[in-house]
Write a protein that binds this DNA or RNA. Structure first.
Length: 259
DNA sequence: TCGATCCTGTAG
DNA sequence: CTACAGGATCGA
């Protein structure tokens, strides 16, 4: 489910609904998905702050407890009205003192939680004003990695995943196989603009559509130019959208518009 | 830099 | 049945 826009939506909603709430009891329902004694650390603690960095969520609890949550492919974190009513894919639940619950649901069970002392070093937030063309150029300089793989490196730019890396490259007209370090100034500027545009648009769309009738992912999907559209016509030139494998993931692109 | 791995679900 | 899935990490 989540790329950075979905993670941001999760965090915003969590802030609205559960920030400041007391966790009477924390339960880890799937052993191995959490590192550290989460049940002991979070039981009786108050959720003071919800922070997002890239696709990572940091739940700050009273007592200097920091819980690092990563939703991976199919995780979700949301508030339910009754913590006793849980579906089978719930991996952890934070029972709130008012009877509600913060639930970590994850069908594929790839998501993880970990108690941490400090926040890990991550790459730039694409929507941070400090993330400029010059910053991107500095990161790209000398890199021989393929542009798509580079963009998905969370240590460079944090939050771009398989969908939005492809979308940004399409909008910038850059071939995803192109070595990052060979991009000229003009192309880097286009790429930077595309990243900011794609991510800011996605954040707002995903958040607005959250919880609406129908699937909020579908609304965002309609905005996508290339992702998941193999064989369909490019929205700009009409030629077929291509798919290739990079780093074990599918990359969608237009062979004509992206060079 | 590749492939395997962690898991389950769904589409073909 | 196989292929693939919006992620990340590990070892070769």
């Amino acid at each position: 489910m989540p790329e950075m826009p979905e993670v941001e939506a999760v965090c915003r909603r969590l802030r609205e609904e559960a920030e400041g709430c007391l966790v009477s009891r924390a339960r880890v329902l799937r052993a191995g998905m959490a590192s550290g004694d989460v049940e002991t650390a979070c039981s009786g603690a108050r959720l003071e702050r919800v922070e997002r960095r890239g696709k990572n969520i940091f739940l700050h609890f009273s007592g200097d407890v920091i819980l690092h949550v990563h939703l991976r492919m199919t995780g979700n974190l949301y508030v339910v009205p009754d913590h006793r009513l849980l579906v089978s894919t719930v991996r952890a639940v934070f029972e709130l003192s008012d009877g509600r619950g913060i639930v970590f649901e994850d069908p594929r069970a790839l998501g993880r939680m970990a108690l941490v002392e400090t926040l890990p070093e991550l790459g730039w937030e694409p929507l941070d004003p400090g993330f400029t063309v010059a910053v991107l150029a500095g990161l790209a300089k000398g890199s021989k990695r393929e542009a798509k793989v580079f963009l998905m490196d969370q240590g460079k730019v944090a939050g771009l995943g398989n969908i939005y890396a492809a979308e940004a490259l399409f909008r910038a007209g850059i071939d995803p196989r192109r070595a990052m370090g060979t991009l000229g100034k003009a192309r880097l500027a286009r790429l930077h603009g595309a990243i900011v545009m794609v991510m800011s648009g996605a954040v707002e769309t995903v958040y607005e559509e959250w919880g609406r009738p129908g699937n909020f992912v579908e609304a965002e999907r309609e905005r996508l130019q290339v992702y998941g559209r193999e064989g369909e016509g490019c929205r700009v030139c009409g030629r077929g959208v291509l798919r290739l494998a990079q780093g074990g993931r599918s990359t969608y692109f237009c062979g004509f518009c992206q060079r």
